[in-house]
Simulated scan of single mutants.
Amino acid sequence: MAVYFSIFLVVLTSVCGVIWLYDRYVLLPQRKLKLATAQAQCEGELSEDVKEKILAIPVFIDTPVQIFPVIAFVLILRSFLYEPFQIPSGSMMPTLLDGDFILVNKFNYGLRDPVARNKFVEVGLPERGDVVVFKYPIDTKVDYIKRVIGLPGDRIIYRNKSLYIKSACTEAKTECNEFKQVETTFVSNGDYSDGNVELTRYTSAMPNKTHDILVNNQILPRTAHYYKQSGSQRDEFVVPEGHYFVMGDNRDNSLDGRFWGFVPEENLVGEAVFIWMSFDFERDDSSFLPRWVPTGVRFERLGSIH
């Protein structure tokens, strides 16, 4: 849907822009000339009503002219600066909840055209720990949101619900790094659940960012379903150049890079940076209202995303 809306917005802005230019540089001078001719043929000053009729713009011209500045602003804002998204699932709990409305910074990772998504300005690249929105590699019409775990060249192991990272070797390093376990600290039980199963909350100390994750200790990792990469073990992932490895913070309820592989750099949409609205949808079956109608606003969730 986001792709189709971008195309629609570009087409609408282009059409309105052409009409705006045509009116400004062709039709408007013609109307002014018509007014001047009428004034020259009249001995007295033309009334305001007559002037308004002569300068009147047809509705099919006036409407695009009036809305062009607005939709042009929306196009620039949405394409190059910030775009709103809604969180549709619980794969990023506890960082993001179903019903959160977020802003995605599209400038941080470079400027792209809104249709073909070709990058024309280099700005920066994701850092380990960033929460990113990207085009799902299996179906690029779908937007996903996950956390960056591995950068190009990194080796990642997710074993026994523990995360190990070996950062990429570079020419500037005399020795390659070894695998380091990402330390987790117990926070609480029972704050979140998956059906009737209580989830355990931990604080994960990533190399760049500290954030909370959820783990279902009653199920084993689905290693048999992990993405199979040639030359590595099932629970080990070597991030190719120009790609990123991502995971959901809700570790046992997230369809992420463990199962389908890596995110190409060109699929990145931007960094999730702010929750600007958050709704509750806790409505039971006895309610006459549909489930998509909010039951409340979670004001305490508004703010920056970590």
Rank of each mutant, 00 (worst) to 15 (best):
P58Y: 04
P58D: 14
V59W: 14
V59K: 11
F60Q: 07
F60A: 09
F60V: 14
D62Y: 12
P64T: 07
V65G: 01
I67A: 02
F68H: 12
P69F: 09
P69W: 08
P69S: 10
I71M: 06
A72R: 02
F73P: 01
L75M: 13
I76F: 15
I76Y: 08
R78P: 00
S79L: 09
S79Y: 12
S79P: 09
F80I: 03
L81H: 04
Y82A: 10
P84F: 08
P84N: 07
P88V: 06
P88I: 05
M92P: 00
T95H: 04
T95W: 06
L96I: 11
L96F: 11
L97E: 14
D98E: 15
D98K: 12
G99I: 04
D100Y: 06
D100E: 10
F101K: 11
I102C: 12
I102F: 05
L103A: 15
L103V: 07
L103H: 07
L103N: 06
V104E: 10
V104S: 13
N105V: 05
N105C: 10
K106G: 05
K106F: 11
F107A: 08
F107R: 01
N108A: 15
Y109W: 14
Y109V: 11
P114K: 08
V115K: 13
R117A: 10
R117I: 03
N118A: 04
N118Y: 12
N118G: 07
F120A: 06
F120M: 06
F120L: 09
V121Q: 06
G124H: 03
G124D: 02
E127N: 13
G129L: 01
D130A: 03
V133W: 01
V133K: 00
F134K: 05
F134W: 05
K135H: 09
Y136N: 05
P137K: 05
P137C: 07
P137M: 07
D139R: 02
D139W: 03
D139S: 04
T140N: 14
T140H: 12
T140L: 10
T140D: 14
